[in-house]
Computed example of a mutant assay.
Amino acid sequence: MTSAPLLYVCVRPQQGAAAAEYESFRLATHLDERDLAQHDLVREPLPDDAFERFGGFVIGGSPFNVADPESTKTPVQRRLESDLERIATAAAAATTAALFTCYGIGIVTRMLGGEVTRAFPEDTGPVTISLTAAGGRDRVLGGLATRFTALTAHKEGARSLPPGAELLATNEACPVQAYRVGDRLYATQFHPEPTTRAFTERMAVYRDDGYFDSGDFDAIAGRVLAASVTEPARLLRAFAREFGSAEG
């Protein structure tokens, strides 16, 4: 176990949603503000000393899309994608640990030479995730139920497992749900951090951003609130135990 704190990396332009996401990660990992620091990558580049100060990184979601044409991306998006690739490169080389979620899995997949495409979106709400045999043996995902419910909302996904990655979790609609590269780089397509209540609050922020028909908000929120999403948070807690500074 490392002695340095973890760093939550925010890639959401919407500051209210970003603050709530940090709190979701903090609660799910059972870490306090000392053991889970935060950095707003939308507004500030990754500090030069980040790899010396922090034992690992957790990267939140974003309304950005990796698969969008480069010509349509803002300078901020291009700069933060470059910084995220720095984190992924270091984790792939086992000089740090990192867990990329949702948008972040596209960053890692593209960096590894895989294809990120809009052919594998998932509707907003609960989905069923299945561990692979490798996932069942993994030190972070291995303690989870073989099949569990998680929350998704994304417009793109990996076409197939990128080179050098080991598939840990899958489902029918978007087969690449979680993978590991080496011993310290993890990526999930689903969101491991929010409670169902926090997810509906995030839905309200993005209700007009094309993830779902805004007129269906109440029905979708009802399905979310009725779901049991205990297992994804256990994944985050396991990651924090393995790579963070807090005991337990």
Rank of each mutant, 00 (worst) to 15 (best):
R86L: 07
D40L: 03
V116R: 00
D40Q: 05
T101M: 05
I129W: 11
A97L: 04
G135E: 02
V58H: 04
P126L: 07
I59R: 01
G135Q: 03
A145N: 06
E115G: 12
A88Y: 02
T109A: 00
E70Q: 11
L144Y: 09
G55E: 00
D48A: 13
R86Q: 10
R78W: 06
S71D: 12
T132A: 12
L144W: 09
N65K: 15
M111C: 12
T132P: 12
T109R: 02
G113Q: 13
G104R: 05
E52W: 11
T89P: 02
L112Y: 05
E115K: 15
R53V: 00
V58S: 07
R110V: 11
C102N: 09
D49F: 11
G135V: 05
A93G: 06
R110E: 13
T109G: 00
G135R: 03
I129C: 08
A97V: 05
A150R: 08
E115A: 15
A90S: 10
R137W: 05
R147T: 11
G114F: 05
R86C: 03
V66H: 01
E81K: 10
A92Q: 00
T95I: 09
L46Y: 02
P63F: 03
T74L: 02
T128N: 08
N65L: 15
C102H: 08
I59S: 01
D49H: 10
